[in-house]
């Protein structure tokens, strides 16, 4: 009988918040667990655990992904940005400033995912319409704010010239 050896773990190299990282990970390891438990980056959070809520959102090569269902091995050779990497030292990202200013933060459980999704949107489309922002946030739930102030904060960071709804 042929026994197929199960590869128990493999080495991945990635950049996390601008820092190169090399890790041994098991093939089923999820990016969220690697970030939270191995790298102590607790900003990405687990809620629905099934790619609905966006609490675990991080950017991989600039695109938002749900880290709760994203295999860590997939991140090999890529750049990962988490909420901890948004600010430049003590200088907050304009989105972070706007979230504070507009009162877009309540319990904060959704905040990291919201910020990163918004970051990706504004990189793609600097002047989105309010309807476009709402549409882009379809994979990011917030049970506290009712979204109004989150949309306001994101739109405040958009370049002028965004369409109106």
């Amino acid at each position: 009988m042929n026994v197929i050896p199960i590869r128990s773990s493999s080495e991945i190299r990635l950049t996390v918040n601008g820092r190169p990282v090399t890790l041994e990970v098991r093939p089923e390891a999820l990016l969220l667990d690697v970030l939270r438990d191995r790298l102590q980056l607790k900003g990405a959070r687990r809620s629905c655990d099934m790619q609905v809520c966006g609490a675990c959102t991080v950017l991989v090569d600039g695109a938002p992904v749900s880290a709760c269902t994203y295999l860590a091995v997939e991140a090999d050779g890529r750049e990962v940005l988490t909420v901890e990497g948004l600010a430049d030292g003590d200088r907050l990202d304009p989105l972070q400033e706007a979230f504070i200013e507009h009162g877009a933060v309540q319990c904060g459980f959704c905040t990291a995912g919201m910020l990163l999704t918004a970051k990706a949107l504004l990189a793609e489309e600097p002047s989105p319409s309010p309807a476009r922002v709402a549409e882009y946030l379809r994979g990011n739930l917030c049970r506290c704010t009712g979204y109004r102030k989150i949309l306001d904060a994101i739109l405040a960071c958009a370049a002028p010239g965004g369409g109106t709804r």
């Binding site: 607790k42 900003g43 948004l86 504070i100 904060g108 459980f109």
Partner: peptide
């Protein structure tokens, strides 16, 4: 400003998990 806003937008806020 909320006194906990900065820790929440920077990912430093700590929850049970």
């Amino acid at each position: 400003r909320r006194t906990d806003a900065l820790e929440k937008v920077t990912g430093r806020a700590r929850y049970l998990s």
